[in-house]
Amino acid sequence: MPTLFISDLHLDDARPGSTRLFGEFIDGEARGADALYILGDLFEAWIGDDDPSQAGALVARKLKALSDDGVPVFFIHGNRDFLLGDAYAERCGMTLLPDPTRVDLHGTPTLLMHGDTLCTGDLAYQQFRAQTRDPEWQRQFLSQPLEARLAFARQARGASAKHQGALREAGTMETITDVAPDAVDDAFRAHGIDRIIHGHTHRPAIHCQDGRTRIVLGDWYEQGSVLRVDGDGTELAGLDPVA
């Protein structure tokens, strides 16, 4: 049975087609997996485990049913859902993993990560990431009323869009928001592995060089995307278009 990897679904009530496709994937192909790994940005935004979205409720039902049927589900936080906590993970029946996590994947040591820490050239984002991963910042944020947190999420999405627009205007979008080669090399060396699987950049590809493999998962904006890994190899494939 294959091990399945997905990331960057960015599920949101404003995009019900992606949520429906996710549900079909869980009810279909995922039932035949030996495990499902979600490498971050499952949601467009997550403001705490009391998030009221319909997408969050559907995901919890689908993943809990999958887990109850014997398929382990693992989750690594992304830059949009870093506040997803133990309470919601329990609702889903999934296990939270640190970023990065090293696993033995069908006999090959493999490093799993969301991928944003590899984009070291985006200094503005890395500063924001450092701030929002601080436990005290998270404690204070989660103590705010729901409406205040929802407003912050809207503001953060707007700021992100503005930042990316400025990078496009300057002609630096492709380089700044992609991984930095030095950061990738450091990850390979630091963890003593020859394969990395990550998402975040929305640039699906399998990069092979000097005996090392870096697999980048695709997003779910226009169509689904899944990586299948078994004892015979890997397959990075698109799923049905988002209706």
Rank of each mutant, 00 (worst) to 15 (best):
H77Y: 05
A57T: 13
G231D: 11
L97Q: 06
E169K: 10
P52L: 06
D8C: 08
P98C: 06
D51S: 09
G165C: 05
K62H: 09
H202G: 00
D12Q: 05
L111K: 08
V103I: 15
R31V: 02
G115E: 03
A14Y: 06
S67P: 08
I206M: 14
L63C: 01
D230I: 04
L58A: 15
A237R: 13
F25C: 00
P16A: 03
A45G: 14
D210P: 03
P181H: 02
D178N: 11
A166W: 00
K64P: 02
L11P: 07
F75D: 01
K64Y: 11
A57F: 12
D134H: 12
D122Q: 03
F152M: 13
D122R: 02
L167H: 06
P204G: 00
R212M: 11
A190L: 14
I6T: 05
T110Q: 11
G70R: 07
D182L: 08
D178P: 02
T3S: 13
T132W: 09
M94T: 09
L36G: 01
A45C: 09
G70S: 05
Q131V: 13
P241W: 08
D27L: 13
G211T: 05
A33G: 10
I193T: 08
D104A: 14
L11T: 05
N79G: 06
T177M: 15
R15P: 02
M173C: 01
L217M: 08
D186R: 15
D182Q: 13
G107R: 09
I197Q: 02
A243G: 15
T117Q: 14
D12N: 12
A35Q: 04
Q223H: 15
I197L: 06
F82P: 04
R91Y: 08
G238T: 10
E24A: 14
S18C: 09
D104E: 15
F74T: 02
A151C: 08
T108K: 15
G32S: 10
D219R: 01
A124D: 15
N79T: 07
L9V: 09
R212Q: 14
E169T: 10
R212W: 12
H198V: 03
V184G: 01
D240W: 10
D27N: 12
L227Y: 03
L83R: 05
A60C: 09
A55L: 06
